[in-house]
Computed example of a mutant assay.
Amino acid sequence: MTFWLFKSEPDAWSWDDQVARGDKGEEWDGVRNYQARNVMRQMKVGDLGFFYHSQKDKAVVGIVEVIAEAHPDSTTDDDRWECVDIKAVEPMPKPVTLDQVKADPRLSDMALVRQARLSVQPVTEEEWKIVRSLGGLD
């Protein structure tokens, strides 16, 4: 299994919006960055990811699961853009803020710190365990 981080502005698509989609999930559409698209092309069904509220909250607020691998993004006719589908799995008991991530030396190499603007990012297994622990899981 591989781990990821999905960023969303809560005013555009929030954790509550994701949860409301239930097991049907939702396309992670609208990504128009080649690097982020290429990250999604690596995802497999069953992979897990952090759901991250960007902008004002700047915190990991939940866990999602990839339920469909990369396919054409339904929000455009441009065949360069693909997306995956994800569903909500569980909320973080305690949101993990960007400040907490930056303050933890074990997470200094995390893409969230190094490539802050990338909307879809890989997460290492060790980073996954640390952030889950900071959020009150495990």
Score class of each variant (00 low, 15 high):
135 G>I: 11
35 Q>K: 11
32 R>F: 12
18 Q>G: 05
105 P>F: 08
130 I>L: 10
46 G>E: 07
11 D>A: 15
33 N>F: 02
100 Q>R: 09
135 G>E: 07
88 A>N: 05
133 S>F: 08
108 S>T: 06
126 E>C: 03
92 M>K: 05
47 D>W: 14
84 V>M: 03
130 I>D: 02
9 E>I: 08
47 D>T: 12
20 A>S: 15
2 T>N: 15
130 I>H: 03
134 L>M: 15
103 A>C: 04
75 T>N: 13
68 A>V: 07
23 D>V: 12
56 K>C: 01
1 M>E: 06
14 S>V: 12
60 V>T: 11
127 E>P: 12
19 V>P: 09
69 E>L: 09
118 L>I: 02
5 L>P: 05
120 V>Y: 01
125 E>M: 08
77 D>F: 09
41 R>Y: 03
118 L>A: 00
38 N>K: 06
112 L>W: 01
34 Y>L: 08
18 Q>I: 14
45 V>D: 05
14 S>H: 12
23 D>P: 07
106 R>N: 13
76 T>Y: 01
56 K>G: 02
107 L>C: 05
81 W>A: 03
91 P>Y: 07
107 L>I: 07
49 G>E: 02
114 R>K: 15
99 D>F: 03
64 V>Q: 01
53 H>R: 06
65 E>F: 11
129 K>L: 13
23 D>A: 15
126 E>N: 11
126 E>M: 12
26 E>P: 01
35 Q>I: 09
34 Y>R: 07
83 C>Q: 04
83 C>I: 02
69 E>M: 11
72 P>A: 10
137 L>N: 03
14 S>T: 11
113 V>I: 13
115 Q>A: 12
40 M>G: 03
117 R>G: 02
19 V>H: 04
114 R>L: 14
40 M>Y: 01
72 P>F: 08
118 L>Y: 00
6 F>R: 00
39 V>I: 15
114 R>W: 00
3 F>I: 00
56 K>Y: 06
113 V>L: 09
2 T>P: 08
